[in-house]
Simulated scan of single mutants.
Amino acid sequence: MSLPTSYMTGSFSKIPQYFDTMLTAKAPDKFTTKFMVDLGFTSSNDRQFVNVLKAIGFLDDAGTPTERYFKFLDQSFSKQMVAEGIKEAYADLFALNTSANKMTKSEVEGKFKTLTNGSKENATISYMASTFINLCGYADWSEAQVLEKKSNENSNNISQESFVDDTEEPKQYNQQVRGFDLNYDIHIHLPATRDQAVYDALFASLAKHIPLK
């Protein structure tokens, strides 16, 4: 099952604020709960966001910012990176519904119950769904879809360019062949004889069957 084991139990509506505040600060060597406090988020619910960042690939297990985190700091890619992290973290959910980011909370809860085989308490499923819904609300899905479409178009163009249409070359070749002037060289091995009449008869026969132009 590819579902995050980390989720928030409250302060879901503050998820956009967490991300926006991260954009105003330099990436730390280690993203810890203390760093969350330094950013101004001091409640226990706020600190749970650190593990959510690990789940979506912004931090490694040790809390070190990943390449995705640094790309996120470029505001032209910020919300796209969040969408990318969500799709990776909730891969099984998106396998069931490629538009899972558009699902309602109740729909997400139903899918989570299926994916966890009913092993989670209803309260836990609700926390997981609320975390997912609020993450999706911040991410820029339209940008991710446009980039994915462009990527597919580029792949198609490469495939088309790699196909060589060789119908023209044979056509030109055939036209050239039809315009050829053909010359024949005929080699005759004369018999060894002293009888002139033999040669006269031979050349007379050649003149008859191969007229000279």
Rank of each mutant, 00 (worst) to 15 (best):
S99N: 15
S99W: 04
A100Y: 03
A100N: 12
A100Q: 08
N101I: 02
K102S: 15
K102R: 15
M103F: 07
M103R: 01
M103C: 03
T104H: 01
K105R: 07
K105Y: 05
S106E: 06
S106Q: 09
E107C: 08
E107G: 03
V108W: 01
V108D: 10
E109R: 11
E109P: 00
E109K: 12
G110L: 00
G110C: 05
K111N: 14
K111A: 14
K111V: 10
F112Y: 02
F112I: 08
F112R: 02
F112E: 03
K113E: 14
K113S: 14
K113Q: 12
L115T: 10
T116S: 15
T116E: 10
G118Q: 06
G118H: 02
E121Y: 01
N122R: 00
N122C: 01
T124S: 00
I125E: 06
S126Y: 02
S126Q: 07
Y127K: 13
Y127G: 01
M128G: 02
A129Y: 05
S130N: 01
T131Q: 06
T131L: 00
F132I: 01
N134E: 13
C136V: 09
C136I: 05
G137H: 09
G137W: 04
A139W: 05
D140V: 06
W141I: 08
W141R: 00
W141T: 09
S142A: 14
Q145I: 02
Q145Y: 01
E148F: 03
E148W: 03
K149M: 08
K149G: 10
K150C: 03
K150I: 13
S151Y: 05
N152G: 00
E153M: 04
E153W: 03
N154C: 11
S155F: 01
S155T: 09
N156S: 00
N156H: 07
N157M: 13
I158C: 10
I158W: 01
S159H: 05
S159M: 02
Q160S: 07
Q160L: 03
E161D: 14
S162N: 14
F163R: 14
F163W: 13
F163V: 14
F163H: 11
V164M: 07
V164D: 04
D165L: 03
D166K: 09
D166W: 04
D166Q: 01
D166T: 12
E168I: 13
E169Q: 11
Q172N: 13
Q172A: 11
Q172D: 09
Q172H: 08
N174V: 12
N174D: 12
Q175E: 15
Q176E: 15
Q176N: 14
V177W: 05
V177K: 15
R178Y: 07
R178K: 15
R178V: 14
G179K: 15
G179D: 15
F180M: 13
F180L: 15
F180W: 10
